[in-house]
Design a protein around this nucleic acid. Structure first.
Lengths: 112, 112
DNA sequence: AGGTATGTCAACCATATGGTTGAATAATGT
DNA sequence: ACATTATTCAACCATATGGTTGACATACCT
């Protein structure tokens, strides 16, 4: 049920990989299905090389798996490391819930 | 209930802030209660200045709130931005659950 | 065999990161 | 008044990041 707890340096890499909107967009893209590098790169106003590098970052973080068939590299989402990241974050749920609750109360009180 | 959805560049900053084990450790520390900079810095094998910078990163990301009383800066955890990060991640839950389930099945089958 | 498509590698550039040391600012204690 | 404590600011350093361009290696098509 709970994720396989990455070591600290892997968690560094995962959060680092997520700390860029282009890479987050790539992951969202891959959530709809595996795709090859060129077609992944197409919608971004950026060189193919740049996207290639981003994909390498994602791959190093374990968030993307690559299958090479001939000259075409097919990238697929590998979400499991995110489970560890989310698990790390979930530790703080009580804190933000508390905050959000008191904000909700405030709004409610305001409406008298 | 759902978090106030940070803009992309704020989310960049939050994930970036989390992409460092020292900063994650600082947050864990602050989860136990607010503390001043010097005492926060003490257990890390690192200069006070380094910690001061890390705290600035956390503050810029909105993960730490600072209250200055005289010369002492008290830092407190501000977890709400993490809610947005977790929300972003939760989109992928179905993907990793699927993976973890099939792994569980594999283990089960293995034990015949 | 020759040309085209897919993708990486290598070098470069500007800026950011994570750390250091040393000096500066401001509040407290004696 | 003077020393001490708390903390930041400034400059520096090495390395990482996010992007570029140009060249290269393969695979596919005719």
């Amino acid at each position: 049920m709970n994720a396989p707890a990455l070591p600290d340096d892997r968690l560094d890499m995962v959060f680092q990989a997520l700390a860029n909107r282009t890479r987050r967009a790539l992951l969202r893209r891959l959530a709809k299905g595996a795709e090859k590098v060129t077609s992944l790169a197409e919608p971004f106003g950026m060189s193919l090389n740049a996207i290639s590098k981003h994909l390498q970052v994602l791959e190093a973080a374990g968030l993307v798996k690559r299958t090479v068939t001939g000259r075409v590299h097919t990238c697929a989402l590998e979400a499991t490391p995110m489970a560890t990241a989310e698990e790390w974050l979930s530790f703080y749920e009580e804190f933000w819930n508390q905050k959000l609750d008191s904000f909700a109360e405030f709004v409610e009180a305001e409406q008298e």
